[in-house]
Structures are given as C-alpha cells and as structure tokens.
Design a protein around this nucleic acid. Sequence first.
DNA 1: CAGCTCGATATTGTCAACAATACTTAAGGC
DNA 2: GCCTTAAGTATTGTTGACAATATCGAGCTG
Lengths: 226, 226
Amino acid sequence: MSATQPLSHTRADEAFDCLQTAIITGELAPGEKIGELELCSRFNLTRGPLREALGRLESRGLLVRRPHAGVKVVSVSAEELMELYRIREVMEGLAARQAAERMTDQEIRDLQATLDSHEKMIDEAQGQAYYQAEGDYDFHHRIATGSRNAKLAQMLLGDLYYMVRMYRYRLSTSAGRPHRALGEHRHIVEAIAQRDGELAEFLMKRHINAARQNIEEKIQEGVLTI
Amino acid sequence: MSATQPLSHTRADEAFDCLQTAIITGELAPGEKIGELELCSRFNLTRGPLREALGRLESRGLLVRRPHAGVKVVSVSAEELMELYRIREVMEGLAARQAAERMTDQEIRDLQATLDSHEKMIDEAQGQAYYQAEGDYDFHHRIATGSRNAKLAQMLLGDLYYMVRMYRYRLSTSAGRPHRALGEHRHIVEAIAQRDGELAEFLMKRHINAARQNIEEKIQEGVLTI
DNA sequence: CAGCTCGATATTGTCAACAATACTTAAGGC
DNA sequence: GCCTTAAGTATTGTTGACAATATCGAGCTG
C-alpha cells in the first residue's frame, strides 16, 4: 500500500490507529457499547492514552460518548452513506479543480503512472477487488493532496475517506465497476493535465455521483445490505 | 451571545471549550508554543482532562503536537483563509440545496424571522458588528442543520465555522457589508422557501464567494492584516 | 400485578506520582 | 573562536489508585 507504516511514536497514537482500523474493519461492530477496560485489555493499552484516543475518535465522529455511560461505535445507515457521497461530490470536485490549477507536472505524470498500474492490475483480472479498494483510494488521495488546499485534504483524508472505507468493509464490496471507473479516472486526469479546472471538477463530480448511484441501486436490489 | 451556556458536564469538555475559545479569541496566539503545566494553572485544570482536550483540538486542526516537544497553536495565513472560503463555498452550497429540499415549513418561517431580527438590528445601526459576527453565524448555522445531512452539519459547525471565527477575531473585522449580505441572505431564503434547491445552491455559492472576494480585497488594500 | 424508589455494583471521570524523552547549557576539542 | 559533545534539567508521556456517577436489581407501595 502507499502509506502508513503505522510507526506511531506514542501510545496514544497507537491506540488511535488500532481503534480506528478496528472500527473501519468492523472488528468493533457499529452500535456496540464497549467498556474502556475491555478496550485496554484487547489492545494492550492503559486508560490514559486510550481516553485521549477516544477523544480524537469522538471529534471525528467515529464514536459517541455519553458521560459516565461509556462509548459506542457510531451506527451507520445506507442514507448516511448516500449523504457522505454527496459531500464527497462537492469537495472532491473542488479538489479536482484546484489540482488542475496547482499540481506540478511531475505529480501529474505520477498520477498517470498510477492509473497505468491500476489498468495492469485489472487486466490481470485478480486485482479487481484490490483496485476497487486501495487503488481507488490512492487515486483520490493524490488529487486531494494535489489540490494544495491543506484543510480540504485534511477533511477528505482525515474524515471522509475513513468513513467511506468503513462502509466498504461492511458492504464487503468489490461490487464495483472497475473498467468504467478507470475510464472516468483517465478522463479526469486528462482534464487536469490540460489544466482545465472546470472540466476536472465537472468530471469528478459526475464520477462520484455515478459511484453513489451504483451503490444505491445495488442496495435497493438487495445485492448489498447494510 | 446566542448560545452556549458552556454547561460542560465533564472536566475534559470544559477544558476543550476553554481552549477552543482561547484559541479563537487569540488569547492563545498562533504559533505560540505553550506548556501543559501553564495551561493547567491558567484554566484550573489537571493534566488528564487537559490532554484529552488537546487530542480533540489536534484532530480538529486547531493545534499541532510534536511528541515530547509540546503543543503549539496552529499558525494561520491569509492564503489558508481563502482556501477555507473555497471549501465553505461548495459545502454550504450543498447545504443550501439540501435545506431547500428538506427543511420544514416551520424551520423556513424561523429562518425568515431570524433575518427580520437581523434587519432590525442593522437599522438600529449599532448592531452592525453584531450582525456580521453572530447573526451571520446564526443564519449559516440554521441552514447547515436544515440540510438534514448529519455529517455535513458536523463538518461545517464542528470544523469550518470555528476556523472562520478564529480569523474573524484576528481580523477584528466588522469590515462587513451588512446590507448587501442581508439582501443575499434574503434571496437564499426565498429560493429555499420556493423549494428551488438549484437556485439556493447557486445563490449561496455566490454569496460566500462575494464574502471571500471582499476580504481578499481588504487584505490587499492593507485595510485588514493577518 | 405494575410502577416506582432506593441501594449495590460496576464503570467512567479525575488525580497525583513515576518514567522517558527532548531541549539547554557548559565544557572540551579542533 | 566555533563547532561538537555530553550531562543536567524541564517538560511530556504513562501508570495506577481514588472519587463520582449511571445502570441494574430488589424491595416496597399503590
């Protein structure tokens, strides 16, 4: 994978990473009320760092805490997932526009290379699940950072993507449309390479909107359940 | 002020509120490196709750922490403020569109009443500063919650608005354009009342873009300094 | 028999002491 | 005289014990 040697130099960071991945993978079920002591024994932590991590996770909306009543993992609904995609649509549209204006030529070449490797993986067939999961994440990650908008990148990478990945695990998706998505990615990169911010924004919004509709249909057909 | 009897039922919440307002008001200067013990004595806290609050504030991007090196308030630049407004533009545009589709008739009436009271305050002249500060916040707050998009409201109310308010204090603004802003607010509410989501989105985006340009001009003229 | 009040228990919130690490100051060598 | 190096100090990170509060169960009353 691209990033994350979780090399957390402090116990609280470690706790944060552990809990976050546990929530995303579903190891901690949504709606589950979980005690601090149990979390401590489960992840070999003490309560101090744990509480600090809980604070961070709460402020990111991955869990809720009622005073003296414990923490529970945030429960997720299909409607909320759709709302998430609506937010992504406008924010990543902005990211694409700013990326078109600000990415370096080298970054754009890297982005194109990324897509080439994705294509290879898809053609070698077995990589479809991978592509949908991490490859897609990689693509959007690069554009978010390429926007040179620190707060925007922080909100996308630090908040929204984790939520989306949480749903991905739950849906055990890979119910994707890799070829179509790859084509859409190519068009977006083309627009960025031509420094056409307006077009990049338009294409990105349409891309995410299509992904949203795809999931929505799958859910209504009962192919995917939450 | 409008809300916030800070009635925090836990010491950590109290710490969080105190620190947040201290950062927003500039009582803690940006870039300032501040020790934990000093913060404790300054706000009558102990280090446990304090550290939990620091974790929350860090994940919200109001301060940065290097391990064993202490915390420092995030430093802010004019460019970052402009980026913030670009994010607001797309997110609040979405909020306005969804509010137009989902607000109850009662909520819309309340929103109109809010604008009436703002107008009265402006006409009574001395309320200009108030309007620009809290009244504007109130208006955008209602639309964010009216969008019925929990994550969107959380991101706007929990992240962006605090950042914007931080800049507001720094700029000692009120360098506003209350009458023009009120008119724009009225048009947005009209579009919402007519359930015209597309128009509401367009008007909101234009409204925020105008506010951004206004600040940008003021900064370039040297009237405002960061 | 249902609803409520009251108490026991377990969990969370808080605190103060201990350990580990980074910054500072001073000394020595080049 | 300046840079490098090493010890001391101060600050952060961590731990375990203490206090406060909510949940759960039992007994009582209507």
